[in-house]
Design a binder for these strands. Structure first.
Lengths: 140, 140
DNA sequence: GTAATTGCAAAAATTTTGCCTCATA
DNA sequence: TATGAGGCAAAATTTTTGCAATTAC
């Protein structure tokens, strides 16, 4: 685990494997459920602690959106997402959109570190069951 | 309150005024604190219920990021933000960046409704107190 | 060996809900 | 005055933390 003082435990290895294999940005509880299949005695506290540690060490990414649950991502390069406004599902964009930041002012005095794009849309699953729950706006 | 069956109460008016006047996308609790200054008997439950109702009716916007607290925005047009990776502060971008979505694939089969850009950076306040807490990565 | 990490359980923080009263339309 | 909304408090959800036992280095 590169960082001095950090140990690579079973739990961390499994978390990384499960998050890396997940395409849809699981919440902490979803990671817990996945990990628990392989390590039945793992605790949710361990999941939370490790998601925090792993994202501090850039091994995973903590995503900033979601309804009220935080979500995590095994792909640590800065990249863009598309999110379903109905069900909250999140997918990666295959290709980064090009963004032109010229002419957007002084950005409120911020020092810019990076950017990404959020697309909003209706995912295939929700589109399939259309007209159900119609008109209920998602958050975006 | 345009929608049939919806009443414009003191509480809603004050919430709208306070959110409209806020430049930095308050959390529910921050809205509560602001509103409580003017309506001391208001309850946090009322704040949550109304933030939900008001965003369903497009009078405010529910933002999808934040640490673990949801944030709200009085500016309902789809627009882009910049967020401080140190303290979580969020500001609006003065001008929308141009985004080129051509060549980004089929977007995992989603029907696209819109997009926005998230800039990540260090806000002026955090830049001022630099080197404090250095190296602690924000989430993005 | 020893410092980091775990599981467990309790606590804290955030959000939602039930219920009865009050106020808006 | 009828129905939507508020206040309050309890519950549900999500996240964090203390601690003794365990494990990786």
């Amino acid at each position: 685990m590169s960082e001095p003082g950090l140990k690579m435990t079973k739990q961390r290895r499994v978390i990384l494997e499960e998050i890396g294999g997940a395409r849809n940005h699981p919440s902490a509880y979803e990671v817990y459920e996945k990990v628990r299949r392989r390590l039945p005695r793992v605790s949710l506290g361990t999941i939370y602690r490790n998601l925090e540690v792993l994202s501090e060490n850039k091994l995973i990414r903590k995503l900033e959106f979601s309804g009220s649950q935080r979500r995590y991502d095994g792909f640590t390069e800065l990249h863009s997402h598309i999110r379903c406004v109905r069900c909250g599902r999140v997918d990666d964009l295959e290709t980064e959109p090009r963004v032109d930041l010229t002419g957007t002012g002084n950005h409120a005095g911020y020092k810019i570190l990076g950017h990404k794009v959020e697309l909003m849309g209706i995912c295939p699953d929700c589109a399939a069951q259309k007209e159900t729950n119609a008109g209920k706006p998602g958050e975006y």
